[in-house]
Design a protein around this nucleic acid. Structure first.
Lengths: 94, 94
DNA sequence: ATAAATTAGTTTATATTATAAACCAAATAT
DNA sequence: ATATTTGGTTTATAATATAAACTAATTTAT
């Protein structure tokens, strides 16, 4: 009937981050923050969770003299997202 | 870009309840409990929230000598669900 | 040169939410 | 008579999300 929804993806902000990265393959912290409208603090926390789950990889470098946090989705993240979307559909068929 | 997801519906159990009621127009507590696999306590709480938001109406009667809690979706509930689904799509287009 | 403001975040505290455990009342089964 | 089941509710706890406060360095303005 209703399939389980991965709690890691069933969060507005984390879902937005993953959704963004699915289309882009790479995005930095500030860009994600702008596109999602999240606060830095919330985004920082949620990116951390996605990274710990290996749904995204995070690389911290410098752009000139400033820190730059770059995120990419992993293959694990892609398949988790695809499964989430497929399971979600069990809730949406009116 | 990403549309706001109604937090009342962005919950696995409450979404399942609404999704069920959209198709059925009427269902009792026990039936919903079976279909969703929820615990009674959790279901009781979530039904309460949906009722307080006027997304569903709840009528308590007796079936023979036993209590019977019957739920129906309201027009407000239907349009909230439709909006939720439509907003959700902004997250799903890979 | 120094102070103020901005960038790019992290950490921590708090509010909200979800879930489970404990409970209740009545009915039915042993 | 008492044990179990039905149909829930209430309350306590765990998990989550969010915001506020903070850090550290960089620009920009004075």
């Amino acid at each position: 009937m209703f399939k389980e929804l991965d709690p890691l993806l069933h969060s507005q902000l984390r879902l937005a981050v993953i959704s963004l990265l699915i289309g882009l393959e790479e995005a930095d912290f500030t860009f994600i923050k702008e596109k999602t409208g999240a606060t830095s603090g919330n985004l920082s926390v949620q990116i951390d969770k996605l990274e710990k789950a290996k749904y995204i990889s995070v690389v911290k470098t410098f752009k000139g003299k400033r820190p730059l946090t770059t995120c990419r989705i992993t293959t694990e993240g892609i398949s988790a997202f695809e499964k989430y979307v497929s399971n979600l559909k069990t809730y949406l068929n009116k």
